[in-house]
């Protein structure tokens, strides 16, 4: 049994074969096929990547006039300012990274705990980057 309460075979980087019905007998009658954890890991890490990019762009826009002007181009004349670029790029990076990681790991059992902590670390750094006292300290 692993920490998730499921029976698994573990190698150095991957895991295989969940037996959910052993932990929750009520699932036995549902005939659920086993699913690889790769897509789940992709969902966790991509959220962290998206928030990290949001925080990074927020800091870069404060620190560099060049970055601020590039991010401003994403507003398409709507008056949103550099926020348009920061948020649009972060959202795009989130969806693209999700699609890429999902595709790469679609048949693999990537370790979910490792993926979660990577996503959590990236998300925490990104959240720090969006905190005014922090990012305003990078102003020239």
């Amino acid at each position: 049994m692993n920490t998730e309460g499921t029976t698994m075979t573990t190698t150095s980087m991957t895991t295989t074969a969940h037996d959910d019905a052993q932990v929750a007998p009520e699932l036995a009658g549902m005939d659920l096929p086993d699913k690889p954890d790769g897509p789940g890991a992709a969902m966790m890490i991509s959220a962290g990547i998206g928030i990290f990019v949001l925080g990074l762009l927020t800091v870069l826009a404060e620190a560099s006039l060049g970055w601020k002007e590039w991010l401003l181009k994403w507003e398409w004349g709507q008056g949103v300012g550099p926020l348009a670029g920061k948020t649009t790029v972060a959202a795009l990076v989130y969806f693209v990274s999700l699609a890429i990681l999902w595709t790469i790991w679609r048949k693999k059992n990537v370790k979910l705990q490792k993926a979660f902590y990577i996503g959590l670390a990236l998300g925490a750094l990104g959240a720090l980057g969006t905190y005014p006292t922090f990012f305003q300290s990078f102003a020239p």
Binding site: T3, E4, G5, T6, H18, D20, A21, Q22, V23, A24, E26, L27, M30, L32, K35, P39, G40, M43, M44, S46, A47, L98, L112, Q113
Partner: peptide
């Protein structure tokens, strides 16, 4: 991401406390 995780794993979440 939370929505996609619930959609992907579905009822399997019952057996997986950590997830």
């Amino acid at each position: 991401s939370a929505f996609l995780l619930v959609l992907y794993y579905g009822p399997r979440l019952i057996a997986r406390k950590w997830l």
